[in-house]
């Protein structure tokens, strides 16, 4: 049987983490292809439903990443994101999901290498955990 390849969806803010991933690209820092990025303008834009929907549609892990507290283009998006994330974490925790499947990071535009490292770590961790325990709902994918 082929090795389990976890699927990761990453929500990255346009100004920092998305740019960090761009930098990883321009500096040819390699990381596994298991991650797919959704560009949002700010980490404060990430709605809990985006993350839940990612799990619903088959993600094994989700990354929510944006600027450091002081770098946010919209000043305090990360604070709002943290508050959202705290609630979200409680919810998926009650659902029984392993906490490691949901990760929050602040990765600045200069940290291409950090982005790649976070993805690698997640892929490795998720390989150990195995697939997320949700069966995808019929017709869930729009």
């Amino acid at each position: 049987m082929a090795e389990f390849e976890p699927q990761i969806i990453a929500f990255c803010c346009n100004w920092c983490t998305y740019a960090a991933a761009d930098l990883a690209g321009t500096s040819r820092v390699h990381y596994p292809p298991n991650v797919k990025i959704v560009r949002v303008m700010c980490s404060g834009m990430v709605n809990p439903i985006y993350v839940l929907k990612a799990f619903e549609s088959g993600a094994d892990g989700v990354l929510v990443a944006g600027c450091n507290l002081v770098d946010c283009y919209y000043l305090d998006g990360p604070v709002k994101c943290d508050a959202m994330f705290a609630i979200l974490k409680k919810l998926v925790h009650i659902l029984g999901l392993e906490d490691e499947r949901l990760r929050r990071e602040m990765i600045s535009a200069s940290e291409g290498v950090v982005f790649a490292r976070v993805v690698e770590e997640m892929v490795e961790g998720l390989k150990k955990l195995g697939p997320a325990p949700f069966k995808v709902k019929k017709g869930a994918v729009v």
Binding site: I9, K36, V38, V40, S57, K80
Partner: peptide, 26 residues
């Protein structure tokens, strides 16, 4: 994100758009 009813949406980044994108990635 804060709006409980979905009354507010951000043009070009509507929930519909992002959910459609997320749902199709895998």
């Amino acid at each position: 994100v804060a709006c409980p009813t979905g009354a507010i949406s951000i043009r070009h980044f509507t929930q519909e758009e992002i959910l459609a994108q997320v749902g199709a990635l895998i």
